[in-house]
């Protein structure tokens, strides 16, 4: 756990005018501040927060999976992955098959919440809007997998866990969904109320490799 205080040791020497700048110049616990860098002169990792227009969990009733998968595929404009533990994406949506009967639908547009909800029959599935309930952190770089492997004992070798693979696991006691977007890019979905703690852990874990924080982006 990092230092929980953002105060520099010489707080008393600060003036009102320098306070905000002084806070940005060093790691801020629990928040990603664009432009912040730490750990190395030439950081090998970048961190940034991503947003989504819509983020929904879809729970298919037993034996309704095919209907649900077909509907989600049509909505997203993708062919769904063949099994849980995989995701597929189009420019407008990303469909994660997270467990038997359970999907996460990430849409680029806020209207996707209503679109998906109305497109699915309640006899087939239940839809829960998680748009405000998840935050997404991207870690990118050659050593990103090493950082994640400090928390999760999952084989991130590209042969075992290629781009398009996902894992639900626990990072720093926080339930997380890890999406491998490419060989060096991982997106981590975490409950909003715990995302500050995830960022706190991640900045700490990334420190030995060095990281730079980039401007927030979108997941699609």
């Amino acid at each position: 756990m990092s230092d929980v205080s953002n105060e520099s040791p010489n707080t008393t020497a600060r003036t009102e005018a320098t306070k905000p700048e002084a806070a940005v110049a060093r790691p801020v616990v629990g928040r990603l501040v664009p432009g912040e860098a730490a750990g190395a002169e030439d950081p090998s990792l970048t961190l940034r927060e991503l947003s989504a227009g819509a983020l929904l969990e879809v729970g298919a009733w037993p034996n309704r999976r095919e209907n649900v998968a077909n509907r989600l595929g049509e909505l997203a404009g993708v062919t769904l992955p063949g099994r849980p533990g995989r995701f597929t994406e189009s420019p407008s949506a990303l469909v994660c098959w997270i467990a038997f009967g359970r999907f996460i639908y990430v849409g680029a547009a806020a209207e996707d919440t209503a679109r998906v909800d109305t497109a699915l029959d309640t006899e087939d599935a239940a839809v829960v809007d998680l748009s405000g309930a998840r935050r997404i952190v991207r870690i990118e770089g050659e050593t990103a997998r090493e950082v994640l492997n400090k928390a999760v004992a999952i084989d991130f070798d590209p042969a075992a866990f290629p781009a398009g693979a996902l894992a639900q696991s626990v990072i720093h006691q926080i339930p997380a969904v890890i999406l491998r977007r490419s060989e060096t890019v991982f997106d981590v979905l975490a409950p909003s109320s715990l995302a500050d703690a995830l960022i706190d852990w991640m900045t700490d874990a990334a420190l030995e490799f060095g990281y730079r924080v980039e401007e927030p982006g979108t997941i699609l």
């Binding site: 037993p62 034996n63 999976r65 063949g82 099994r83 849980p84 533990g85 038997f100 009967g101």
Partner: peptide, 10 residues
């Protein structure tokens, strides 16, 4: 039952 029908899972 569904798990048994999907190959490659896990």
């Amino acid at each position: 039952g569904e798990a048994a029908r999907i190959s490659g899972a896990g």
